[in-house]
Design a protein around this nucleic acid. Structure first.
Lengths: 196, 196
DNA sequence: CTCATCAAACCGACTAGACGGTATGATCGC
DNA sequence: GCGATCATACCGTCTAGTCGGTTTGATGAG
């Protein structure tokens, strides 16, 4: 009877939505397709989510809080700017590879969210960005990072790699996520290090 | 008489579509909105385009052929790998900034094209990619570029910057397109140069 | 010049169906 | 019998694309 059927509706729906959004795109996925893939009905779904939009936001929410908490943890440990930056870069790259479908959906469909929720996403990303900028500025003050290029360009140069992962990295490919994270971080650190 | 051509319906529609797709997104833009913004009627539009999809592809087509022909031109000039690579990078970055709305639409909405046309886009981009890879491989053979990191990672590291431009660069911001193109190219070249 | 002819360009009301969301009520643990 | 959890049928809206008809402009005969 009930013992078998304890699957969480909300989780199943989120999982199915992530899968469909990342492969077919948000706009090309109907609520009907989602609930069918999740093995539930529309009524059940709308009991837990207020809209399709809400479903998309849930995916973002999970990723944003995860990455932010990991960043906080690393910066809290402290250390030399270059080592902190290295740890942060490797971590966000690895995490982004682990959550590759989320990333695909993220960068492709933010603009489909309501104005209000886009603002929220932007706010949260700016928080992350500012904390990242602080690390770089500490490095510049310590004379280990270059300051002849605008900080905004340096930051964009790194986050571009994070964004682009979902466009080229394939888990079944030759490199592990750890290798790629190290390699990309090295490339980035090499380019921002002050030449001696 | 060519000089005094009446305003071309196809051009007006393409322009309006680009504008709306880049601001509201492909899925959020109706054909009706496009034709209204272009000052034409649906009938006129469907006389020149077979579908909404067709309109999106036209935007891609223009960008793909432009960038490919520029790449061909630069490689045809020849020269030392590092200088060729620098010229190619600066050029694609500058061009991408000039065509920022196209880029926004491009990276956001490729997956909305028909399977067939996605294949075509992929094919054309691979052509560009392969030519780019050849330059890097020549540099590696000449001993000026590092070969301790997979070429695929090096390439992705550069194209990530190109993709990401539309996410952060603002024409009204402090840096000109030429400055940014130079700065980003320098960062990239620094990271792929073999250390001596 | 006038007018007939024809094809391309263009118009816009209309359709068919998909889709997000809801109203209603059944089921069940407590 | 009461709230939470879901199932089902349904609704109003929106939209890509169509189609019969109209305008325009080029051509050429008289």
């Amino acid at each position: 009877m009930g013992a078998m059927r304890t699957k969480n509706v909300a989780d199943e729906v989120t999982r199915a939505a992530l899968d469909l959004f990342s492969t077919r795109g948000y706009a090309n996925t109907s609520v009907q397709q989602i609930v069918e893939a999740a093995g539930v009905t529309k009524g059940a779904m709308y009991h837990y989510f207020t809209s399709k939009d809400d479903l998309l936001f849930a995916i973002y929410e999970r990723m944003l809080s995860l990455q932010k908490s990991r960043l906080d943890e690393i910066t809290a440990r402290g250390g030399a700017p270059e080592e902190v930056l290295r740890a942060v870069c490797v971590d966000v790259l690895e995490t982004s590879i682990e959550f590759l479908p989320e990333g695909t959906v993220f960068f492709r469909s933010v603009h489909m969210l309501s104005e209000e929720r886009q603002k929220e996403v932007t706010r949260r990303r700016r928080e992350y960005n500012d904390e990242f900028a602080t690390i770089i500025e500490r490095g510049q003050a310590a004379g280990v990072f270059r300051d002849d290029v605008p900080t905004a360009v340096l930051i964009a140069h790194f986050f571009s790699d994070v964004h682009y992962l979902s466009h080229w990295y394939r888990p079944e490919g030759p490199e592990t996520k750890t290798e790629v994270a190290q390699q990309v971080t090295d490339l980035f650190l090499r380019s921002i290090r002050k030449e001696t």
